[in-house]
Design a binder for these strands. Structure first.
Lengths: 214, 214, 214, 214
DNA sequence: TATGAATGAGAATTCATTCAT
DNA sequence: GATGAATGAATTCTCATTCAT
């Protein structure tokens, strides 16, 4: 989990290096378990330099939050989903959902270290939670609602479920898959991941109940 | 999140007080964000007293892990699930799953502070992960596999899904519901929770795909 | 170095046990490196019990000093030296000195743990130094002066040396032998000790200069 | 005992100050009786600064040991003894030994605080003992053996004594003189020291036995 | 008397932050 | 701007001593 890349944000080289190092180590040891000295060493700068770019250690965390929101807002929300919607035209719903979920998974995967840091700290700080809620959860949910609405119109999915419950269920399953792979890599070999994704999507679409029996 | 109750473990009054305080504050601020001074104050003992019961601060965490595993092993695994299996006889599968999930949710809810502490730290420590995997995940999965097998035999559920994928999906949805309620209580009022549970179970059982269309 | 025996002092069983344990551990780890808890455990009493017999930890040290002085004063000073003086009558000076030194060595050896503790702490505390000086060094030196005077009278030893310088030289050599054996037991096997004592006495008596050459 | 001077070792100013303060206070109160706070105050630095230079308090002690060995190895062993050997050519053995012993005494005196600290702690720690044995005792003994061999060849000293026994006897007497002066300065006025040294050397060379009588 | 749990003052150590160079 | 030595407040942990039982 070391390949954090913040180059698309317009940061000075040092600031970027510091942020990337901080994300990487925060992700490994947690915010409070990480020292500014470690960050400096990994970033290849002097400890004092950190405090030229970030007034306090806490500011590094805030900065990660801000950048995470920026990255997600720009990438996730807008761009590729619209495209997907177009691509979805005339396609099988399974094919579409599969693509959507895999797409989101790869995005989340690429941002995983930042997300892990921010989500863990969100646990302890109301402000972070609110920022995430307002800037990520709500827009993402709105987007999904829109997409789901289209699918309902086309008769592809049930119309008796609120889109936000469906959304949460999908998010929960994606998160679950990612956590499994991250926390227990040895128990979840890569070759199994694809099958798991397929089956998880299958469950979400079809449910686990035996058809025709009921 | 203050209603931790460890009275069923046979601990001395002080040890119990210290553990309860530690769980409560660790849960709020994280292990590294909590000082032994805070724990002592909340427990109403001298700071030195903590170290009569726990050699190091880290030992408090280990003790929480051990007790969590003991509590879950004893309660969850054995007792109530067997009962549920009997109760399930001749009942509607939906009714049964609903009961099962609600039962597990209330258990997890009651252990939530401990779980939160341990899961957060599991993120950083391999040993904790392994302990959880071996003592909770594997046994719980085995149990579910057993239960699921019975349901397959009765023709209540699909026989083309590996039980562990189903298990993970259910766990993910339960976890998601609990996290929502805990992290964003203001956005998820209690009266909605019941409906959400119902619909989540509905999705797991039926899927989101429109029947008859396919 | 565990066979401290204070039974000849009239102490209650517990007090004796505590003192013996304290001497043994102080001797191994030093006064400041020893905890009252360790002493209690080794003595087989509760930690609180120590403070019934000794107001403070420091009092244990003082007590050791007092007992050491008592033991040395009674045993060394009076008793056996007088006897030796009698035995010395008409004997070879070498035989006598050999017996004297071996006798003193075995005494010092038996009191070694106490001595080590007290001498080490004497390094840090003026009062201890003064107590040792007044109660041990001065009387012992007086005694030796007396003995040496007799030997001078009999023409057995040189009459141009102050007895206290001779005394110190003998003490230094005895102390040296004991320290070697204690600190580097592996480098000073027991079978060598006897030869070393013989030769050390030989040096003190004869010197290292080649006779007849000068 | 405050005139420790470590300037010949190439240490940063602060490191030197800290070491000198530590030696001085360790020497007065012992390692365990000294707090890092005291050392910092005496050195005129913040307590935290100590730990920039020494990972732990124990490391200060190790550092003292290392520097002591370095100082003794460089100074004692090589340089001045070789010179002495040359100076000794054609000189009276008494004059030579006198010079040698006085020379060693002044060296030991100048290193006395370090030596005291290290020797006291050697009492408790095997590793320190071994380091001293290997790096100081063995080389010094070898050196003396060499020197003594030369004196034997020239017929200046007895050839029936093992050099290491002679060596230990001399060391014991030097150590004794220094300890007397240090522990009981009021009982051993400076003007006596010279006479004592002379007579101690006299004893070592000539022994205490009356000549011609035997 | 004896106990040992509890205490709290004090010790070593850490680390975010500052600031002179 | 960048550095990294220095700081000292805060933190974990120790231990002699007390005291209720």
């Amino acid at each position: 989990m070391d390949e954090i890349d913040l180059s698309e944000l317009n940061l000075s080289e040092k600031e970027q290096k510091i942020l990337e190092s901080a994300i990487s180590i925060f992700s490994d040891k947690g915010y409070n378990g990480t020292t500014t000295n470690e960050i400096a060493k990994k970033a290849g700068v002097a400890e004092g330099t950190i405090f030229r770019y970030f007034k306090t250690k806490k500011d590094i965390l805030s900065s990660i939050l801000v950048h995470l929101i920026a990255l997600i807002s720009s990438k996730i929300a807008l761009h590729s989903v619209e495209e997907l919607a177009k691509e979805a035209e005339g396609r099988d719903i399974r094919w579409f959902l599969n693509k959507l979920i895999r797409d989101r998974m790869s995005l989340v995967n690429s941002l995983f270290p930042m997300l892990r840091v921010v989500l863990t700290e969100a646990t302890y700080h109301e402000e972070i939670r609110e920022a995430l809620y307002k800037n990520i959860i709500v827009p993402a949910n709105n987007l999904f609602t829109h997409l789901y609405g289209l699918m309902v119109e086309k008769g592809q999915v049930r119309d008796d479920l609120p889109s936000d419950v469906v959304f949460k269920s999908i998010v929960a399953n994606i998160a679950s898959l990612i956590f499994q792979k991250t926390l227990f890599p040895e128990h979840f070999p890569d070759e199994d991941t694809d099958k798991q994704i397929d089956m998880t999507i299958n469950i979400i679409l079809t449910g686990i109940e035996k058809k025709g029996v009921k």
